[in-house]
Amino acid sequence: MFAYTVRRLLQIIPLMFAASIVIFTLLALQPGDPTDELRQANPRITQEQLEALRHAYGLDQPIYIRYFKWLGRALQGDFGQSRQYAVPAAQKVFGERLPNTLILSGSAFLLALCVAIPVGIFSAVRQYSLADNIVTTLTFLGFSVPVFVLGIFLLYTFAVWLPDKIPGFPAFPPVAEVPYTPFSEVRSGTTSFWIFLRNWAWNLVLPVVALSLIQMASWTRFMRGSMLEVLNLDFVRTARSKGLSERTILYKHALRNALIPIVTLVGLSIPGVLAGAVVTESVFSYQGMGRLILDSLISKDYNVAMAALAMLALITAIFNLVADLLYAVVDPRIRYS
């Protein structure tokens, strides 16, 4: 198991190498470079000055040389300067936006799991009952709502419609332009920690609900199917004939086996959650990595885009590995070697 983990961790290295080449090339091929904006901002800039700037940025070199230079610096933690925000790209991406995205997708992930597994079990145990039919229909509906459509309608309902109809209804922030009271205010003592936490959670509610719904629906469906399959197996019948309580059969015998395919599914849907986070963040103007990727692509801030995209690829690779390892933890029959 240990050897397997180490080998898989080592495999991430060539994978990230290849992924970064692809992303870097695509970004380097993007038309226009930062000197275009300088030319627009200052029409009197001379061609020599532009050339000097392009030389200073290293843009006059071929793509592969730029890539290896970027790689050499990135491995030392230097991802270049953000031209839009005038701070190091690493600080913008890893220090500021990555935690926000992880909080958003992590909360959505947990919410989806906490709802999907109990509801899936419940629905499987009462197969074809009214409640089961309602759950099945709802999961199908939830599965088909695109996250941005849901997000906009949540915004409309909770930020515009309800506060309009019901006086005193606490309006959810329609646009989380400043996502929450910055933590520095807590440190300096101007805001109490609880107010910081409350603002912060309040801003998170709608995005998390929007992001988690699709995963919630598809996991519930799978949990139900997997549970139904296990409940029909012989060992469950054996457990029943031994006279075990229904509770023990469900939670000790059936659930552990039913969870095995769910673990793979959950692991495989992590890229989906991250992709959904990109869309959700744009709907709610949530200051996360997805929003940053979008903004930096529009404003041609390629150092930031490169750092953020590479980070997203790395997270995906790591979580794929975690899913595979969890698989072995849940199912003792699986031995990696």
């Binding site: 992924a19 992303i23 695509l26 970004l27 992709a275 990109v278 990727i293 997203l312 690829a313 995906t316």
Partner: peptide, 10 residues
């Protein structure tokens, strides 16, 4: 292994 939506955007 590459998140596809950002790549679609790029």
């Amino acid at each position: 292994t590459i998140p596809s939506l950002p790549l679609l955007l790029v």
